[in-house]
């Protein structure tokens, strides 16, 4: 795996290795997946190594087209990797599905409009060898009072909790959520995550894809940052923030010399425009000291980075021109 930002190797950042007490929930090595052919070939996933231990709550964070959905499709056995190996609790993804070890909440679709909420859950429950009681699952997803309602009459947030209820039926060891709160209002998102959080307390492994930074920060033990089909960072939210480490020093200084600033140890970048300088540095003290003692700098400010800065620094593309599709067009919704 190439690592353009030379970050800590993903698999060592949290000492993730063979689990001492059992099988890894996810063990992926060298996953590759491309779509199309010839010059239009798109490498959606380009060498992903990922080991997830049982009980971890992992956010898959990245911009659209980073390869999140393609990776999830492979974890769920919906598509086969072109290369690489992948096991879920030691089994192939399809076998894991057949044994009810893994389930997923997709971001949209997957529901029959003419069924009621209870019928949808009951028919899904009937497909598993072992299943949780329907009403108990409805209760846990917070939709027991909607059981008799037709799916088409449910709001987006209610439908999402229905998908969540369906995913709970087999009591899976691994639950995968693909951008589960897309299109929900603030309240819907909060309720949804409350339900998930209550559930993960029971020790379920959860992987969720998101491009909401605050969701990754608030709900994940571990954040896997993906960009252009590769993992560019892997660690806790705090570790990810540290990776794009340092601070930004801004000041109004007409006579500050950009070259001199750039030569200060620790400085990553210098922007100078209309008498204002903006310096990203690992050593803000040195820059501040220089600006305040050797230049006419005023209005000096020092700001530390947040997860969003880290996200932008780690996933930002220098050549943001290509429109890498997340996956081939979903066959359910296209006319081709």
């Amino acid at each position: 795996m190439t690592n353009p930002l030379t970050l800590a190797a993903p698999t060592t950042s949290r000492g993730v290795g063979p689990d001492r007490t059992g099988l890894l929930a996810v063990d992926a090595t060298g996953l590759h997946k491309s779509f199309g052919a010839g010059s239009r070939r798109v490498r959606a996933v380009n060498g992903v190594d990922l080991q997830i231990r049982p009980g971890e709550v992992v956010a898959f964070l990245g911009p659209n087209g980073a390869g999140k959905t393609t990776t999830i499709d492979m974890l769920l056995g919906l598509s086969k990797p072109d290369a690489g190996s992948l096991t879920i609790f030691g089994r192939s993804p399809r076998a894991a599905i057949a044994h009810g070890l893994v389930s997923a909440v997709m971001q949209a679709g997957g529901l029959l409009k003419d069924l009621t909420v209870r019928e949808t859950v009951a028919v899904t429950a009937s497909l598993f060898a072992q299943s949780q009681p329907v009403d108990e699952v409805l209760e846990r997803a917070g939709i027991l009072d909607l059981a008799g309602r037709r799916v088409e009459k449910c709001s987006g947030g209610q439908q999402q909790r229905l998908r969540f209820a369906m995913a709970l039926l087999s009591d899976p060891g691994l639950l995968i959520l693909d951008e589960p709160t897309t299109g929900m209002d603030v309240e819907g998102r909060r309720d949804f995550w409350q339900a998930i959080r209550a559930d993960t307390a029971r020790g379920r492994t959860v992987i969720f894809a998101t491009h909401y930074l605050e969701e990754a920060d608030a709900y994940a033990d571990r954040i896997v940052l993906v960009r252009r089909g590769e993992i560019v960072a892997d660690g806790t939210a705090a570790e990810i923030k540290n990776l794009a480490s340092g601070r930004t020093v801004t000041a109004t200084a007409g006579n500050a010399d950009a070259a001199t600033l750039a030569a200060i140890p620790g400085v990553d970048s210098v922007e100078s425009r209309a008498g204002k300088v903006r310096v990203r540095t690992k050593d803000s003290d040195a820059v501040a000291r220089y600006l305040l003692t050797a230049t006419d700098a005023v209005d000096l400010e020092i700001t530390s980075h947040n997860l969003e800065d880290a996200f932008v620094a780690l996933t930002g593309d220098q050549d943001e021109t290509d429109e890498t599709p997340e996956a081939p067009e979903a066959p359910e919704t296209t006319g081709k």
Partner: peptide
Amino acid sequence: MTTLPAAGPAASTLAGPRNVPPFGSF
């Protein structure tokens, strides 16, 4: 990672032994 432990208690019942339904879930 290199090798998995040959045996050991399951990390949780969530990943415990399961059956595949008969008749392809019919």
